[in-house]
């Protein structure tokens, strides 16, 4: 009830426009505006593009790092695995308010943390105000997000790797495979379903959870010049309004429903495509 009501309500609202009482039924006109009117279409496609980039970067950077760390942590003879695991997970527990604050402080050109470190390394001249440049802001925010959330895929991979039966690994070892090959040939195929799961969770989180961090670091206008704008921030601005801009419930609901369909397509592809294939491998 609590979960489904908002969806139905936003689908309903997206078919109306402001007017007398509850509004005027306009059919799909709002969707036409969203992709047709330059003001809306520009923002929509820009946010969509940034979301796609965000997703790609998380898949290519975050998840491999998480998998690599999980693989190392799952080595049975490794000492201190629990400590490492806790350390890696710590950033995930933090509130985005502090994460935003501390990374802005670290990356700031004014307070000298990164510039001093880079000078020490002898690469000081490469320092740039990354969060403030259109060309680098999105990747910088993504890296911060990866820093914070790598713990989650790490944990899922780790749980899956530990679930690989000892006998299977033992058998492979007897066959003369070393640790590296055991990972590639034996463990990885077995945890493919988890890879798929992480992929889809990354996809969903990318459209829903990315909002908080970007809002806290780059603000509601997702600067500079909307270069870090994602569906979440776009939706927030549209639905609730931002500063001089008043909120528009109906366009907000339209953006929300569009977001809903985008995620729906992704999840369906996963459920009916990727997951079936993965299960075939599994058995």
């Amino acid at each position: 009830m609590f979960a489904i009501y908002p969806i139905v309500e936003s689908l309903r609202l997206s078919l109306y426009q402001a007017g007398e009482g509850d509004g005027v039924f306009v059919g799909l006109a709002n969707y036409a505006r969203l992709v047709g009117e330059p003001y809306w279409a520009e923002q929509f496609w820009n946010a969509f593009k940034n979301n796609v980039l965000l997703f790609a970067m998380h898949m290519l950077i975050q998840n491999p790092i998480a998998l690599a760390l999980a693989a190392l942590l799952s080595i049975p003879t490794l000492k201190g695995a629990a400590t490492y695991r806790t350390i890696f997970f710590l950033p995930t527990l933090l509130s985005v308010v502090v994460v935003g604050f501390i990374w802005q402080l670290i990356l700031s050109p004014l307070w000298g943390v990164t510039p001093a470190f880079m000078n020490w390394l002898g690469v000081g001249s490469f320092f740039k105000p990354w969060l403030g440049l259109e060309s680098t802001a999105l990747i910088t925010v993504t890296l911060i997000s990866i820093w914070q959330y790598v713990g989650i895929p790490l944990m899922l991979f780790y749980a899956a790797l530990l679930n690989v039966p000892e006998e299977t690994i033992e058998a492979a070892r007897i066959d003369g495979l070393n640790g590296w090959w055991i990972f590639w040939k034996v463990k990885l195929p077995l945890i493919l379903p988890t890879l798929g799961l992480v992929g889809i969770l990354t996809y969903i989180g990318n459209f829903t959870a990315s909002f908080d961090l970007i809002y806290s670091i780059q603000g509601g206008l997702a600067g500079p010049n909307f270069s870090t704008d994602v569906m979440g921030t776009f939706l927030f601005r549209t639905f609730f309004g931002f500063q001089a801009q008043l909120g528009d419930v109906h366009m907000g609901a339209t953006v929300a429903s569009a977001l809903f369909f985008i995620i729906l397509i992704g999840v369906s592809l996963y459920l009916f495509g990727v997951q079936r294939r993965l299960q075939r491998y599994d058995h």
């Binding site: 003001y39 403030g132 259109e134 500079p224 010049n225 500063q243 001089a244 801009q245």
Partner: peptide, 26 residues
């Protein structure tokens, strides 16, 4: 602030972005 911000985007918000862009040189 008065009346002029009723469009999409609101002029007040637009001024934020374009003024920053002017200072940034873009």
């Amino acid at each position: 602030h008065q009346i002029l911000s009723r469009g999409e985007p609101a002029l007040g918000n637009q001024l934020w972005t374009i003024t920053a862009n002017v200072i940034n040189g873009s």
